[in-house]
Design a protein around this nucleic acid. Structure first.
Lengths: 232, 232
DNA sequence: GTCTATAGTGGGATAGAC
DNA sequence: GTCTATCCCACTATAGAC
């Protein structure tokens, strides 16, 4: 099985320590510039200059300007993981666990709010390897879904057993929705998104609980069938 | 009140018949090229050449390459409106009306599926005037929401009265979700998205009906409060 | 108001020398 | 692995024709 598609060959992973250093220097320079002047205004020439390398060298490690975003994405993902795990270790109430996981994601993203708008734009491109739904993103997506599985399964909440296995993916989708709202959120400190989480979490908790009600059984089954079909 | 922001001055609307013709020729050329070679590979030089005008003239009518997408968006919007109205005139069942409205949207978009990926990417940029959530898009967004209001209010479905007024916006959001899935849908003829609509519509219908149940009253209220807060 | 031609800027991306 | 030189294209500026 080929490692890369024809469309987007990956740059080589650095093998020497020096190469690793160079790559990191380029990434650091890029993220610093992104935060300071935004994505569009950051030129590859400026990134290279700030990193102390040539433009060609920057392209040796990052296939395109957009690929710098992918590296950023992995960083934030790891940060989210770390922040969430800290809270999840000491909490059993589902609502609190879910809220903490969602808030932790925003905490990790917050320094990049202005730039995240463009990040999201790029991620929305279906043909892009940066899309959260793409093949290439599946490792980090799976890790993110696993985080929501942990939030659910480590809690005391009782829900419909079949829903139990699909719920993490649905919670991840909810997280994507939260991020979508957050990216558009112009309120101070994005407090509206924080409010959205706090208001939505009890509703989600209630809906999951209600999934055990007999009247909702058919709807729950329909939903699960639909999710199964769409994933394929 | 100034007509334009400093950031993005609008090109002049053509006043003469000839100008109107020229603008249309440029748009037609652009859409044809988008369908044939995609958005990225379409150069403004090629658009101008195919339209038989100079590059400067193309920029006289469209402030940027992205603004050609906005024009495309308006076209599709009008097409959606037209297709949906035809069906809505002869149907009273809510499920059928909603399904028809959603399918009509995809029908209007289908010729552009490959290109729509990039279109969606651009629309997802929150700071872009092309974002479906932006200020500038509100006329076409309002029109789109009105379409879903018509689908609901012209039907015989009975739902919670307070939900009734907010539902069109929620249905429009659902439509945005469908488009998001459709854009990523690589199945032949995007049949998976069609299946998504057919499976989701009965569930939505049932959920709306259930909104009158007493057990769900508090959740319904919570949901409405949340929506109200988020819109502000 | 509409349109052309031309010359330029600046930035993403690449080729090929070292 | 790294650089320099170069290409291409979005976009701008300008000066003027009709």
């Amino acid at each position: 099985m080929p490692k890369d598609t024809v469309a987007s060959p990956s740059p080589p992973e650095p093998v020497t320590a020096k190469g690793e250093q160079t790559k990191q220097a380029i990434l650091d320079a890029a993220l610093a510039l992104f935060r300071r002047v935004g994505y569009e205004a950051t030129t590859m020439r400026a990134v290279a200059r700030q990193a102390g390398v040539s433009v060609g060298n920057a392209y040796y490690y990052f296939a395109s300007k957009e690929h710098l975003i992918q590296a950023f994405y992995l960083d934030v993902q790891a940060d989210h993981q770390e922040r969430a795990s800290a809270v999840l270790a000491a909490e059993t109430d589902f609502g609190a666990r879910l809220a903490a996981t969602l808030h932790a994601g925003l905490d990790a993203l917050t320094p990049y709010h202005a730039f995240a708008a463009t990040f999201f734009k790029t991620a929305a491109e279906p043909t892009s390897p940066l899309s959260p739904f793409s093949e290439q993103s599946s490792p980090s997506r799976d890790a993110s879904i696993a985080l929501f599985a942990e939030a659910l399964h480590g809690s005391s909440l009782k829900i419909d057993p079949q829903l139990r296995s699909e719920a993490p993916e649905l919670l991840w989708l909810t997280y994507m929705g939260v991020i979508l709202y957050w990216v558009h959120d112009r309120s101070a400190g994005q407090h509206k998104t924080r409010g959205l989480i706090d208001a939505a979490v009890p509703m989600i908790e209630q809906l999951l609980s209600l999934s055990r009600l007999r009247i909702l059984r058919p709807t729950t089954r329909d939903l699960l069938n639909l999710v199964a079909t769409l994933k394929q």
